[in-house]
Amino acid sequence: MFRISAVVAAVALATVTATTPAWASTDRVVHFDLSHLQQPENITLEPDGSADLTFSPAAQVARVSPSGQVTILAQLPGRTGGIVRTPDGALYVNVNAGDQTGVYRIGRGGGAKLFAALPAGFVNGLALDGRTLYATDSSAGQVWRIPLNGGAPAIWAQGGPLAKVTGFGSNGIKVHAGAVWVSNTDNGTLLRIPVQRDGSAGAIQTRATGLPGIDDFTFDGRDVLAAINASSQLAVIHPDGSHTIALTATNGLSNPTSIAVRGKSVYVASAAYRTQNDPNLLITRF
């Protein structure tokens, strides 16, 4: 079950520079049912403003309508991770399920089918670049490249700055301006990996540090909006690598995992993995 409410958020921006968005004071929050493991791990948006979310512990994909109605689209065989939507309306989802681990496809008519099997590690973030998917393995410290035309998946980048320390290495992932960007949760870093002319990975570059517990993220112009899971914060990472905090637990964040932007609206999914209190989807404007 869920409820939708309007809350007034007094966003503390005392340390925010002029390049940080002026965040709105009124947010909408869709609250999920923790007792049914409705803890959102990742997000992608539909053209009508609906949000498609993976409920990781429940092994589900759900859709939240603009009015706040929650509909379960698919039940998967294991914990769900990253999710992307292709222009034809299909959803691709990372699933961790032993020998059934891999990327699953959910067609517009429903029904989930294994699209690309991957070795059992911990597949996490998922990004789309035209007809290619990129998936992170947080356990192995890898980025997989998966063609949508049915070609074989292959390890595209691995090791070094992508590796974990004790928990999660490569985690969130996006494709932006000719490069694959990846967060490393253990190291608190944001990484950039250029895509070479032949499609191979260039040298891994560290573009931001000092972000312990960083999860998934998205781009908003030249800035990056990043979910800081451990401290329940939304960080705005600037092109020079510095960052400021725009939202915190006082605004309703509860171990945020992922972010999406549509126009002036920012969607922030919180899974409450550590707090065990109020998993939700916060929708704010700037």
Results as ranks from 00 to 15, higher is better:
Ala154Lys: 13
Arg145Thr: 06
Leu253Val: 02
Ser5Cys: 11
Arg105Lys: 14
Val61His: 08
Pro194His: 05
Gly102Ala: 05
Asn229Ala: 01
Phe217Tyr: 03
Thr26Trp: 11
Tyr104Gln: 05
Gly110Thr: 10
Ile43Gln: 01
Ala22Met: 03
Ala51Pro: 01
Asn184His: 01
Gly241Tyr: 09
Ile259Arg: 05
His36Val: 09
Thr17Ser: 15
Gln276Leu: 14
Val261Tyr: 01
Thr248Leu: 07
Arg85Trp: 01
Gly125Phe: 06
Ser56Val: 07
Gly111Met: 04
Ala203Cys: 00
Val180Thr: 10
Val268Trp: 04
Gln38Pro: 11
Gly150Cys: 08
Val30Phe: 10
Gly221Cys: 00
Gly160Tyr: 08
Leu133Lys: 09
Val30Pro: 01
Ser170Val: 06
Arg262Ala: 10
Thr54Ile: 05
Ala90Val: 01
Ala58Phe: 09
Ser56Cys: 10
Leu34Tyr: 08
Ala260Ser: 09
Ser35Cys: 00
Val84Lys: 08
Asn187Gln: 15
Lys174Ala: 15
Gln69Asp: 12
Val165Pro: 02
Asn280Phe: 13
Gly199Asn: 04
Gly121Asn: 08
Phe122Lys: 11
Gly141Ala: 01
Thr275Pro: 04
Leu73Asp: 09
Val165Ser: 13
Asp27Arg: 15
Val236Gly: 00
Trp181Met: 02
Asp223Gly: 07
Gly221Asp: 06
Ile214Ala: 03
Ala18Gln: 13
Gly178Val: 04
Pro239Gln: 09
Ser270Pro: 07
Thr209Tyr: 03
Ser231Gly: 01
Ser50Val: 03
Val29Lys: 14
Trp23Asp: 01
Ala271Asp: 12
Gly178Ala: 06
Asn149Thr: 13
Thr218Asp: 08
Ala9Trp: 11
His243Thr: 08
Thr189Trp: 09
Gly210Ser: 05
Tyr273Ala: 10
Val165Lys: 15
Thr244Met: 08
Phe32Thr: 02
Asn280Asp: 08
Thr26Phe: 08
Arg28Ser: 12
Thr166Pro: 00
Thr250Asp: 15
Pro57Glu: 03
Leu126Glu: 03
Ile72Pro: 07
His36Glu: 12
Ala90Glu: 09
Val103Thr: 13
Leu34Pro: 02
Leu91Pro: 10
Ala154Arg: 15
Leu247His: 07
Ala271Lys: 12
Gly68Gln: 02
Leu37Trp: 09
Ser232Asp: 05
Gly221His: 03
Val11Met: 10
Leu191Glu: 02
Ala62Asp: 04
Ser139Arg: 12
Pro87Gln: 00
Thr250Trp: 12
Tyr134Trp: 02
Gln205Phe: 00
Ser138Arg: 05
Ser25His: 12
Pro153Gln: 11
Pro279Ser: 04
Leu76Trp: 08
Asn251Lys: 08
Val261Arg: 05
Gly141Pro: 07
Gly167Trp: 15
Pro66Met: 04
Arg131Ser: 13
Ile173Ser: 01
Asn255Ser: 06
His176Tyr: 14
Gln38Trp: 09
Ala14Cys: 09
Gly121Pro: 09
Pro194Met: 09
Ala90Cys: 11
Gln75Pro: 05
Ser231Glu: 11
Gln100Val: 01
Val195Glu: 00
Leu13Gly: 15
Asn94Met: 10
Asn277Cys: 03
Ala117Tyr: 02
Asn277Ser: 14
Trp23Ile: 14
Pro21Gln: 03
Leu128Asp: 07
Leu13Ala: 14
Gln233Arg: 13
Pro87Asp: 01
Val103Glu: 03
Arg285Val: 13
Gly160Trp: 11
Leu114Pro: 00
Thr250Arg: 15
